[in-house]
Simulated scan of single mutants.
Amino acid sequence: MPESINFENSAITLGRLAWIRPDLVAPHMEHFMKPWCLALAMVRDDLEKEDAFRGLCAVVKVNPSGGVSSLVFICKAIASWHEIRSEDVNSEVSQVLNGYKQMLGNSWAECWSALDPPVKERLARYQV
């Protein structure tokens, strides 16, 4: 089995665990958020990716400061979506992005400037 598929499966499994028990996963997210987001960005748009993003959003809500150092990677993972069909996942993603924008205040511009133009274009749909 190709290594990328293993990473994708692991990312989806971690997302499902995070969705069910964000209280267990959130305290440790600074240790795995970057590779998790890199793997999620490679997953095709489907129900499994939706499940994983439910988990991502759940842990960020429990421990937003744990994701700040990986915020650029969170943004890239979100931008990897072509279309989020689930209204609730779309809403959760929007809440995460806008929550970080509010939490970071003036520092949001620094994070935003670190993103590539195509990522910014895809994130624009969330009014950030």
Rank of each mutant, 00 (worst) to 15 (best):
A52C: 05
D46E: 08
M42N: 13
K61S: 12
G15V: 07
D88E: 12
M29H: 06
L71W: 03
N63W: 04
K76H: 07
D23Y: 12
G55Y: 04
P64E: 00
C57Q: 06
L24V: 11
L47A: 11
P2H: 11
L123Q: 06
A109R: 13
C37N: 02
V128C: 13
C57P: 05
I84K: 02
R16I: 10
K101P: 06
W81Y: 14
V25Q: 09
G67V: 14
L71I: 08
G55F: 12
A52T: 07
R16G: 03
V96Q: 00
P2V: 10
R44Y: 04
G55R: 05
D88S: 15
S69L: 03
R16C: 02
V62A: 08
A109D: 09
V25G: 03
A124P: 09
L123S: 06
E50S: 11
L104S: 08
K34H: 01
T13H: 00
C37M: 09
E8M: 11
G55W: 13
A26T: 10
Q102F: 13
N106S: 14
W81N: 05
S80E: 02
E3G: 01
L40A: 03
A124Y: 12
C111I: 15
G99S: 06
V89G: 01
V89P: 01
N98W: 01
H28A: 12
R125P: 07
Q95K: 15
L24G: 08
N63A: 09
V96M: 07
P27H: 03
V62Q: 10
I84Q: 11
L40C: 04
C57V: 11
I12L: 07
V72K: 15
A39E: 01
S10K: 08
E30L: 01
S113G: 09
S94I: 04
S86N: 10
L123M: 05
L40R: 04
S86L: 07
V59D: 03
C57K: 10
M42D: 01
C75T: 12
I20K: 10
S107R: 14
V128E: 02
D23N: 13
V60N: 01
S70A: 15
E50R: 03
M42W: 03
P64T: 04
G67H: 07
V93W: 00
C37R: 05
V68N: 00
P35A: 03
E8N: 09
L56I: 04
L123K: 11
S80R: 08
M42Q: 14
A18P: 01
S94H: 06
S80P: 00
E121P: 04
N9V: 08
L97Y: 06
K101Q: 15
D51N: 06
C75L: 02
E110Q: 15
S86I: 06
H28K: 10
S80T: 04
D116Y: 04
R54K: 15
L56V: 10
R21G: 01
Q95F: 14
R16F: 02
L123R: 04
K76E: 13
G15E: 00
C37E: 00
E87A: 15
M33K: 00
K120N: 13
G99R: 11
G99P: 05
W108P: 00
V68R: 12
V128A: 13
G67F: 05
F73M: 14
C111F: 09
A11S: 02
N9F: 12
